[in-house]
């Protein structure tokens, strides 16, 4: 899949702002719209855009399939792990109140970590689906 020079240059300019915007949506989700899911899809869209532009080989050098296969379950593990840590500290499953010295601080830590887990699973799943489609030939 190759496009003409205008599209290639235009997409190259969009990649960095897209990734930056994904980070903003991820880290600013407590104060503005967005969160792990939206940020994950935006980051995946940037990688997919790059993949559409340069082809499957070069994009898999940046984000290899093996990395995705770690990140997809890794996000769920981080999420559930935060819940288990809350249990180990004497609360309920996914109770963030005891993660830090006081309840509000613990809530902020819990939400932050959980959103990272969502980001990892969502973005890597989207990229993996793209790889799965783009890696097949027409039969």
């Amino acid at each position: 899949m190759r496009f003409d020079i205008v599209l290639r240059v235009a997409t190259k300019f969009m990649l960095a702002p897209l990734l930056l915007f994904a980070l903003y949506v991820q880290l600013h989700g407590d104060y503005g719209p967005g969160g792990g899911f939206q940020a994950g899809v935006i980051a995946a869209a940037a990688i997919i855009l790059y993949g559409l532009m340069v082809g499957l080989g070069p994009v898999q050098k940046i984000v290899p399939s093996a990395l995705l296969e770690v990140l997809i379950p890794g996000g769920v593990l981080i999420y559930a792990g935060v819940g288990v840590v809350g249990m180990l500290q004497g609360g309920n499953f996914l109770d963030y109140n005891r993660l830090a010295q006081d309840a509000v601080h613990g809530q902020e830590w819990g939400v932050f970590l959980v959103e990272i887990g969502v980001f990892m699973t969502v973005s890597s799943t989207m990229i993996a689906i793209f790889y799965a489609f783009a890696g097949r030939r027409r039969s």
Binding site: G29, D30, G32, Y96, Q107, E108, V111, E115
Partner: peptide
């Protein structure tokens, strides 16, 4: 929770 965006605090907490 100290989170102003209620959508986030409901979803994640």
């Amino acid at each position: 929770t100290g989170i102003p965006n209620v959508v986030t605090s409901v979803l994640a907490s």
